[in-house]
């Protein structure tokens, strides 16, 4: 009986196909659906504020696409200009996926307000973003996202993500092309890694400095230093620095120049 289902290459066969032949096997695709648009982002949260920042250069290979393509987006609020928004999303990596992710999250945060009659909290928005990313687990949004806001207790909130939705609340995070240059600087200056109290002991007895939330002015200076340094050492970072300062009063946006070389 098994011979009756045999393919054309066997002796006893039929003049029609009973099983898929080699012609219908999947073909090798040469189209690669991702690219890297460079750039870097960073977020730092304080006691009652969060600062998000990103450079505005967009690259493909060694070419600069544009000197002003923002990577920071307001999420929620009213209308297409996101009036009164209290949450900021930063995305770095593949810009087209970043835009798609931003639009999806923005839409869902706005729908939440229509359906529940209250704005979404940052923690709820953070979890929703994780789900949106994980929903495309097997064809991911190729981006490193950072979400910033003010939590229900009025403290600065910062969440960072990997492309498939793993997330964590942190004090600070750098992402993108120059993340490996910026993150160690932040570890040292924000979380006081490798800071010790002088003369507090020898070797292992040396007491580490306990990290405390930094004032806003200090954090702004750190962000500017981080980016001016990254520009010197990474070719995909430069042109402009977009900063969003989130407080209980709302979001203040700043645009500062960076080196254009």
């Amino acid at each position: 009986m098994a011979g009756m289902f045999a393919g054309p290459q066997e002796m006893m066969g039929y003049s029609f196909n009973t099983a898929p032949t080699s012609a219908s096997e999947p073909r090798q695709h040469s189209f690669y659906p991702y690219t890297d648009n460079g750039g870097s982002t960073l977020g730092i949260s304080g006691a009652d504020f969060t600062i998000m920042a990103g450079d505005t250069r967009s690259t493909s290979g060694y070419s600069i696409n544009s000197r002003h393509v923002p990577k920071l987006f307001l999420i929620g609020g009213e209308g297409p200009k996101n009036k009164g928004a209290r949450i900021v999303l930063s995305v770095v990596g593949f810009a087209a996926d970043g835009d798609a992710l931003k639009e999806k999250l923005d839409k869902e945060v706005k729908m939440y307000k229509y359906q529940h009659g209250k704005p979404m909290t940052v923690s709820a928005c953070a979890q929703r973003l994780s789900h949106i990313l994980y929903n495309k687990r097997f064809f991911p949004y190729y981006v490193h996202a950072i979400l910033g806001g003010i939590d229900e207790e009025g403290k600065g909130a910062l969440y960072s993500y990997d492309p498939v939705g793993s997330y964590e609340r942190e004090q600070c995070r750098a992402a993108g092309a120059a993340s490996s240059l910026i993150m160690p600087f932040l570890d040292n200056q924000v979380n006081f890694k490798n800071h010790h109290i002088p003369g507090s002991g020898e070797g292992h007895d040396l007491k580490p400095v306990v990290a405390t939330p930094l004032p806003k002015e200090t954090v702004i200076e750190l962000v500017r230093d981080a980016f001016t340094s990254a520009v010197e050492r990474h070719i995909e970072v430069g042109d402009g620095l977009q900063m969003m300062i989130l407080t209980k009063d709302g979001v203040e946006e700043q645009l500062l120049p960076l080196k254009k070389d």
Partner: peptide, 15 residues
């Protein structure tokens, strides 16, 4: 503004 086969978009004074 520009758009390419990947859906990447950007805008600039010259393109």
């Amino acid at each position: 503004a520009s758009v390419d086969l990947l859906g990447t978009t950007f805008s600039s004074p010259s393109l």
